[in-house]
Design a protein around this nucleic acid. Structure first.
Length: 558
RNA sequence: GCGCCUGUAGCUCAGUUGGAUAGAGCAACGGACUUCUAAUCCGUAGGUCGGGGGUUCGAAUCCCUCCAGGCGUGCCA
């Protein structure tokens, strides 16, 4: 609808230029049409006359008046156009148009809200990518919810999306994992061991040692230290990764690819990437180490890629990894990271540019931290000491629906306070059920309608007279906005817009539902019932579609 | 020190790429259950958009500066 208004304005503009009613200046590059805050300002408005005032050297209201004269509304889209305030042009949409919206919600059904603005372009999203050295915690959960929903939203907006998890199954942390497990293993065999502070402290290490002992027996004691550590590392990393996959599965998050860091070494990709950049003189030697000239791309200092001891840094893998991603010919690549990694952006961005790609090719989304609370009081957590609440514990306690909804209910730029007690509460303090409840209520109405024999939900032209109350038109106007919520979330990479919209739609429905003297859906009046069933089941379609994108279930009863 | 993020109602947060009179939820107060599910609704109250300058027809939004908080600033991952 907004696009149609936009086209109308565009056409009026062109017509005014052609007729010589406007000075022949450069036409505006984009026409902004928005939904005014107050209903008295119309359904849509544009500020075009104001933005053109200086180049046209005329008063905005005068320009607006010229444009209005050139508006051709052959489709009968608008009932009234007015000039208001400093020079806004306000459009009032013909009521009949809103029924078209309502009809299209039904005819599109599950695909209502989807579009082709992405033009089938390939986007890769990498997220979570937690090291397989311990279970996922709540911070990973937020990244998982954001990444998974963003992928769904982009997909709905017509992009082809691939979700990837980068597994850091190489490097020092894996060896640390191995030696941590080995020590606990020896402990189980009643050796007295000293457990160093730089080892992984969590209880889960003991569990891993236990299952290792169960499957391998005492065999590892006979191996040389380094082989034993490696065996422990392989075993533990596999087990942990397996657990991560299960946790994500329980959280309704899926990935298309699991990409192994180790594979970059096995195929020689890391060496090759380094060699290529050496040839380009972007990597140079200094103090026995190999340095990447990231300062040439705006970083504040150069970064080490190969240490003096010959071992590569994490950054080296990351260069090869991003090179690999870029070679896979995605149109765009998005890395979703915890905000504590933001210091890595300049160097990764430098590597992307050094490989020969535009900086914009790779986008970064930084998700701020999660503060876990219980009854308003912070829960102390320390990853180092192994004291943290895992994602699976949270999901088990509050349910995946509440967890996902609450993780998405904040812009990823703001830190998130997540209160476990509030998340569980079945009350109006908890926003999670508010939206789901709409779905349950409408489902119940449909059940009742079915019992009464009103089971055929399809459009009849007399609905135009029957769906007539301003609250009802208001509901349809809200429904009309849904597709734009999706495209905007996709364009700005901001999935939080979705739950905010759903809350708004839910609020409008609950208010409508509640006044049963005016809005009883299923009644003795068969025609009116049919019309209202058509209206409310459209609301249900959108609620269901929106929750689906968020990975939250839409229950038929609660 | 430098860099990134944040600062909007008592609390938690939105605010549509600069728009018209800054919004919602919670908490507070006052109301509504003979129901298509009260996990709901209606009403009242609540603001120096951190402070100060600037840009223009117009600023919560853009620029500068200061203040406060978070994170980062490894030949760690």
């Amino acid at each position: 609808m907004k696009q149609m208004i936009q086209k109308t304005v565009e056409q009026a503009l062109a017509s005014a230029f052609n007729a010589g009613d406007l000075l022949p200046t450069e036409p505006p590059t984009s026409i902004v049409v928005e939904i005014p805050k107050t209903a008295s300002h119309g359904d849509f408005s544009t500020n075009i006359a104001m933005t053109m005032a200086s180049s046209q050297k005329r008063a905005p209201r005068e320009i607006a008046s010229v444009l209005i004269d050139h508006i051709k509304d052959s489709d009968g889209l608008v009932s009234r156009v007015e000039i208001a305030g400093p020079g806004f042009i306000n459009f009032f949409v013909e009521q009949a148009q809103w029924y078209e919206v309502l009809k299209s919600v039904h005819s599109r059904g599950r695909s209502y809200g989807t579009s082709q603005v992405g033009q089938g372009k390939y986007i890769q999203i990498e997220f979570v990518s937690a090291n397989p050295t311990g279970p996922l915690h709540v911070g990973h959960g937020r990244c998982a919810a954001v990444g998974d929903t963003l992928a769904a939203v982009l997909n709905a907006a017509g992009f082809k999306v691939e979700k990837e998890y980068y597994v850091n199954d190489s490097g020092r942390q894996i060896l640390t994992l191995g030696s941590s497990v080995l020590l606990r293993y020896r402990e189980l065999l009643e050796e007295s061991v000293e457990f160093p502070t730089d080892a992984y402290q969590g209880e889960y290490i003991k569990d891993l040692a236990q299952s290792l002992l169960a499957s391998e027996g005492k065999r590892l004691l006979d191996l040389p230290e380094s082989e034993a550590i490696e065996a422990c590392a392989m075993f533990a990393a596999d087990e942990i990764l397996d657990g991560i996959k299960k946790d994500l599965d329980a959280f309704n998050v899926s990935f298309d690819h699991w990409f192994s860091e180790q594979s970059l070494f096995d195929t020689g990709a890391v060496d090759k990437a380094i060699q290529d950049l050496k040839n380009k003189k972007i990597i140079y030697e200094h103090d026995g180490a190999m340095w990447f000239r990231t300062t040439a791309f705006g970083d504040e200092k150069d970064r080490v890629v190969v240490r003096a001891n010959g071992l590569t840094t994490y950054f080296a893998s990351d260069i090869a990894y991003h090179k690999n991603k870029l070679e896979r010919r995605f149109d765009r690549i998005i890395d979703i990271w915890g905000a504590d990694h933001h210091g890595y952006i300049p160097r990764v961005s430098a590597s992307v540019q050094a490989i020969g790609h535009s900086k914009d090719k790779v986008g970064f989304v930084l998700v701020q931290l999660v503060n876990l609370l219980r009854d308003g009081k912070p829960i102390a957590m320390s990853t180092r000491a192994g004291e943290f609440v895992t994602l699976s514990e949270v999901v088990k306690e509050v349910g995946k629906d509440a967890a996902r909804f609450l993780f998405l209910l904040r812009h990823y730029d703001s830190p998130l306070d997540f209160d476990l007690e509030l998340a569980k509460r079945q009350s109006n303090e908890n926003p999670v059920y508010y939206v789901q409840y709409v779905h349950a209520r409408i489902s119940n109405i449909l059940r009742k309608a079915h019992e009464r024999g009103y089971s055929n939900i399809c459009w009849h032209d007399d609905f135009c007279e029957l769906i007539n109350l301003s609250e009802e038109i208001q509901l349809i106007k809200l429904m009309e906005r849904y597709p734009e919520v999706i495209t905007q979330s996709a364009r700005l990479l901001e999935p939080h817009r979705l739950p905010f919209y759903l809350k708004e739609l839910a609020g409008a429905f609950h208010a409508y539902y509640h006044d049963r003297t005016k809005h009883q859906v299923v009644s003795d009046d068969a025609r009116l019932s049919a019309a209202r069933l058509f209206l409310v089941s459209a609301v249900r379609i959108i609620i269901r579609n929106g929750l689906f994108l968020m990975g939250v279930s839409a229950p038929a009863s609660m």
